[in-house]
Every structure is written in structure tokens, then in C-alpha cells.
Design a protein around this nucleic acid. Structure first.
Lengths: 221, 221, 221, 221
DNA sequence: AATGAATGAGCTTTCATTCAT
DNA sequence: AATGAATGAAAGCTCATTCAT
């Protein structure tokens, strides 16, 4: 939908180059500016200035302002997905996989604060993205959580009455909200990595069949 | 009110009337319009038309468009807080109180879909509200959750290593995300009341000291 | 097409008021500005300034720049049509009617120089108007000529082999071109009223069955 | 060339090459594109694409977009002038010369539809060309008509009271308008060659001293 | 000679807000 | 209190033109 659509754009066609130095340059600038001012209040000229290019140059790489936001999301969610998949590779236990997922999520948020801001805040943005846009990448991200739950249920480690789909949104929602609060509050009441452990504890404990009051934490990070 | 410092309004002073038929009329219209079009894409003239008043009339009751959104939030979060407090009155058990909280939250979302849409979607909208605005009412709402946890820890029903503050955001985040998905998706994979029970189960089970694999559910909707 | 079309313009709808002081004020300003700078080079702000209103005000009366041009054409061609019909009322002889038509055309051009400029020059303007827009009013104007010829053929005053439709465009084209040259050239080689007589002479003489070398001119104007 | 005074081009000087394969290639592409989209809506990149060259290449042959249109006009009007002169060579009778002129005009329009579209439609386009540009080539074309009339008056074949200058514009205007309508309408109510005869008939008959109701047509197409 | 990425001025259009009535 | 016509600043986007390669 967002890429293959045959849109009559007056013959100019889509931007010729999709990747390259300029492309990443503008994308990064847009992340910063959107995170700072918010998508609607950010001006294209702000992004252009931040990227060190002329306003018009942006339109050589992105069809319009909306596409800039969509591309940020697609691009960066792809990184999140690839990243967490890589970390999950060596982990077999479904419950432990959820812990690894949480750790990775918060680690990324901590490492890329402005990115997280755009992903979390701006993506909830307008009808454009909430009603028309289908965030496939987000669904892929969620599907990883869902799969952990199904696996856990298959091997009897996770209670069968838990709906994996509902769980995935609950798990993601909890992490997302905490990450947002960490970003918004300059206070230290929420710290990414300890929070990751807490979230993992509560959710793992909440769905596990065996219920060790104190799950065997390895206190990493 | 408590949003002091939102903006320098040039000394014009606050609108003369805070309450009244017209006030509620406009507020309700704004909820509908914002839910439908999104805050940024909604026009004051849309709200005026929906409310059956002239554009200018809105400015007799609200300082500007931003205040309209803030007032919606304050007003309606107040209702949420009052509502859940009333329902919690007869419930003593801290864990059960969390279940009641979840039920009330989803019941409200189900009953007032457009309101929920505005509160959840639009409030996360701009840095205006995320960085400058202090959502005291939201904090009050969260504080109720936090208090349940503290109470539960005090009487030994809830594990002491759980950070009540972190928990409150995780709990709220999970419910909020699920509610948003219910609104966004016309599918029936997420149904408010069963979801409320699932969320309650997982979180209660996740923080409880005793861990009944199948918590004693009473009348799940 | 140009009026009744159901165009989804985002709910704002068509300008509320179609007539009034402001409407005529803007229309007249647009005629002047378009005549002076040409439609494409004229800016809305030029029209606004000339009309003594703010830019935005124009959009309260006209959907967009294109509609401004179309309205000018519709409005003023209507006047041309009504005017020539009134003058033709007392004239019975088909050949004489053509002469009256020519006189009226040039008289109008002479009286409303800028209007003529817009009608003639700008209407031939873009694909918008030449390929999409159907100038019904122009066709009505031409139909009057055509009717004269048919009447003349019916009563034997005009040669039957003349195609009335082709003639109407030839007659109009000749007058139009001459009017344009009169406007463009500040020289006095072409003067409207004598030119009207010459055109009438040539065309009447060219299609008449009887051929008085010197048609009975009444040398008016 | 003869368009001296069109614009102050800042002393850059004329393009280096005036003729060549590339030159004609671009000119032809421009004719097609201008005819299709209209001068103002046509983009230089459209012309470049159609010509199979890079955008910048066009500026090696033409100073700017305006000059492209002027060159088309000059170039092609030159062809028209040369062509009609060649056809007029063997024709002595002034009235017959007018008929040959009309035939040639419509034959060219029929043979080069897009060219005709550009010449007729686009040239009437902006004040740029109507007020600043002096279309000497068009005047030369008109002068041929004028000369026929003068010759005809000198030998008594054409009524002396006809102003040759006015006549030339009327004659051209009639043909031009008919040609434009033929192009615009996909209907067959106007066919070039029969129309040429009708126009010739009417005008010749209209200015001739002797007035044969049915002029001796020779081989009408 | 040829390229085409980059430029940035310029324009239409929108809409929150005002204020005379 | 209420109106709604008028305002005018603001911004997304286009595209003729340039120039380093």
C-alpha cells in the first residue's frame, strides 16, 4: 500500500533514489526534528535545515511529509525486528525469550532516545496513521511476542487460557508506556534496564504455569 | 487550573464561563470531531458546526483550540477517576481492586468510544501535551493503581520487590494499548470485557505472593 | 459541471455567498489583474490587493483560482448574450441581424476593454479550459449567429450551401481576432465600430444570395 | 533575431548552437508536450524526457522556457510562410490566391495537429507573448493576405472600400478559430479541407466586385 | 557537450482567531 | 451573549534554473 501503490502524481513519479547518503541524512534529521517539535508542528524547512539541504531536496527522496514519517517508522521498526530476532536466536525457553525481548526493547529506547520518541509518540499521531496506515512492521514486531507465547503454551510452560494476541498488545503496551514516561520525565524513577526486568518479571510470572515468587533473575545489564 | 504555564495568553484572562449548557455542548462536539478527524485535522468550524454554534462562540468558552483538548481531558479524566473510586469503595482486597479497576477502565472505553479515542489517541499527540502540559489528572488516575499495589504490599498480598510506580504505568499502558487496538480494529479479536479479565489475571497473578494458576474469577462479562 | 458538481472538498462546501458587493468587487478586480498580468502570472494576492480585501477573503467567494476565471467567463458572457439578444429583438432581417450582432460585439469590446482581454486571451488559456471546461455560454453566443444563418437560409436570403455552424465560428473568429488586435495594438489602424461595419459587410456580402456590391450601410457609430 | 527586446537576459548571451540534431529534437519534443499539457503546465523535465535528453541539456540550446515557445513559433511560422509562398507562386488571380492560402493553412493544420495546437492556443497565452513579444513572423504571414487584397483592388477584382489590413486579420481570425475548434472537438462537424473551401467562398464572395452566387470552385477537396 | 542532483524563491490555499454588529 | 465575515500568517510543495562532475 505505501510503496507499490499506483498513484498518479503528475508524471514525476516516485523519488529516484531510495537509499544513499542524502536519504539517511534527511531521515535522521526528520527523526530529530519530529521528536523535538512533533510531526505536525515540524516544518519541512526545519527538517531541511537540520539535514543541511534545501527544502526541495527532501522531495527528491520523499514524496511528501507523511511519507517521511512512514519511512522513519518502517526503517527503524525493521531494525528493531532484526535486532530482537538476532538476540532471540540462542534463547530457547519461551519465558526467557520474553525477558530478552523486554531487555532489547528498553536497550534500544535507551540507546536511541529521539527515535523512540518518534516511534512511540508520533506514530499514534493522526487518522492518517491510525486509521488508514497499516503498520505492518509493528504487527511483525508483535507477532514475535505472540509466537513466544504460543511456543510456551505448546510446551506447557505458559497457561493455555492466555490469549497470545491479547497478551502481545498488553506486553507491548506496558513497555511502550514505560518507555514513553522515561523519555518524558527527566526524573530517574524509571530507568530502562531495571524496568525491563520488572516488566519481564511481572508478565512472565503472570502467565507461567509454575509460579516461582522470585523468578531466577540473572541481573544482566 | 492545574495546567498553569501551558502558554502565555497575553493577559487576556480566562473565558468568562466555565460551565453551562453551551459549554458542555461544545465540549461534546469537540470530542466527536476530534475523535473523527484527529485534533490537528479537525477545524474549529467543524466543532462549531457539530455544536450548532458560531465559530466565534467557541472562543467565549475556550481560550483556543488547545484548551479545548485540555478541557476534554481534564473533564473526562475527572469522570474516570470519580467513577473508579466509587466502584472501588466496597472492595477491600488490593488484588481484587486492580481487577475492578481494569473492568471499570474497559467498561468506560466500551461505553464512550469516541471519548476514549480522543483521550488515548489525541492526547499522545503533540509535544504540546507531552512535554509542556502536565496531565495531573492522569497522574491521579495512576496514583489509584499505585495505591492498590502499596496496600497489597503492606498486607503481604503483593510481592515487595515490585515498584508500585513502575507497575502503575505498565498496568495502564497495557490497558491503554489494548483499548486503542479495540477502537482501531473493527475486528473482534479484542473484546473489552474479556480483555479486562485477561489483563487483570496476568497482572494480579504476576505480582501476587500466592500464585493460583487459575485465579478465582467471579462473573467475567 | 462547473456548478452542480458534487466535489468532496473536505466538508467546507462551496462558498456561502454567491452574490453581493464583495463578490462583484473581487470579480472586477480579477478581470483587471488577469487582463494585466495574464491568468497564470497573476497572483491571488494581486487580485486581493486590487479588490482591497485579504487573500483569504477570496476563498470565501470562490473555490479556487480556476473558478475565478470560470466565473468571470460565465458571468460576462451571460451579459454579452443577454445584451445582443435584446438588441436583436426588433431586427427581423437575418442579414441585418448579423450586422447588429457585429456592432454589439465590438461596442462591448470597446466599452469593456479589460473584460474583453480576459475573455479573449485568457480563455484560450490552458487545457483546463480548452479541454476539460465546456464553455456552454460561448456556445450559446455562437448559437445566436447560427440561428441567424438558418433563418436567412429558410427565407432564401442566405445561400443554402453555407454551413451555419462553420459560419458561426468563422464570424466569431474574425471578430475576436480583430478585437484582440485592437486591444493589443495601441495604434489606431483598427477602430471598433468601423471594423464592425467592415466585418458585417464582408460576411453579409459573402453569404447573401443577392449581392449588392455596396450593401446599404447606414453608417451608424 | 527579430524578437529583440523580449527580455534582459543579463548579458549571458545566446545559446551557442542554433541548429543541429539536438536542437530539432528538443523543439519537436516541446511542441508535443506544450500541445498536450499547455505551456504553463508543461515542465521542462517533461520536454527533456520527451526529447530523451537531460533537463540541463535544454539550456544549452534555449535560454529558458519562454524562448522554447518563441522558437517554436518563429521556426514553424517560417515554414508556414515559405510553404504558402511556394504554393502561391503559380497563382495569379488575387481572389484565387486567397483560396490557395486558405487551403494551405488548413492543410498544414491537418498535417501537424500538435504544432497547430501550440501555435494557436499557447501563443495567445500570456501577456508575455501578447504584449511584449512582437510576432513578426505572424505579421509576415498576415502581410501575404494583405498583399493579395491590395493586388485585387489594384486590378479591380476586389472592392476598394475593403481595408486590406482589417481584412487580413478577419481572414486569419476566421481560419484560426475554425482550426482551433477542429482540434478541440473530436467531432467531425468541422473538417479541415471542406472548411477551407467554405471560408474561401465566403470571404472571396464577400469582397469580390463581381458576385457570382456560386463561385467557380475548382477541385474542392 | 551532456548530465541530473540540488537549489530556493514563489505560490496557492488553509484555518485559528478577531471584532464590528 | 452570539455571530460569522474577514483576516493574514503560515507552510507544503513545485519546478525553472544552475553547476560540479
Amino acid at each position: 500500500m505505501q510503496e507499490g501503490g499506483i498513484r498518479d502524481d503528475g508524471g514525476r513519479g516516485a523519488p529516484k533514489k531510495e537509499r544513499g547518503e542524502r536519504y539517511a541524512q534527511i531521515l535522521d534529521a526528520a527523526i530529530d526534528v519530529f521528536a523535538d517539535k512533533g510531526f505536525f508542528k515540524a516544518r519541512i524547512s526545519d527538517v531541511a535545515e537540520q539535514a543541511g539541504v534545501a527544502d526541495g531536496t527532501i522531495y527528491l527522496y520523499f514524496r511528501n511529509k507523511d511519507e517521511l514519517l512512514i519511512r522513519i517508522f518502517e526503517e527503524k521498526m525493521g531494525v528493531m525486528i532484526d535486532g530482537v530476532r538476532a538476540e532471540l536466536l540462542p534463547v530457547a525457553d519461551p519465558l526467557e525469550r520474553l525477558r530478552v525481548f523486554a531487555r532489547h526493547h528498553f536497550a534500544q529506547v535507551e540507546a536511541h532516545r529521539t527515535l523512540a520518541e518518534v516511534l512511540q509518540v508520533e506514530l499514534r499521531l493522526s487518522n492518517k496513521f491510525l486509521k488508514e496506515y497499516r503498520p505492518e512492521k509493528l504487527w511483525q514486531y508483535l507477532a514475535i511476542i505472540e509466537e513466544c507465547v504460543r511456543d510456551g503454551q505448546a510446551c506447557g510452560r505458559i497457561r493455555p487460557e492466555i490469549d497470545p494476541y491479547v497478551f502481545s498488545w498488553a506486553f507491548f503496551g506496558a513497555m511502550d508506556e514505560l518507555a514513553m514516561q522515561w523519555i518524558l520525565q527527566r526524573r530517574t524513577r524509571i530507568l530502562p534496564m531495571p524496568t525491563a526486568e520488572t516488566v519481564a518479571d511481572v508478565f512472565i510470572c503472570g502467565i507461567s504455569t509454575s509460579n516461582p515468587p522470585n523468578p531466577p533473575k540473572k541481573e544482566s545489564a
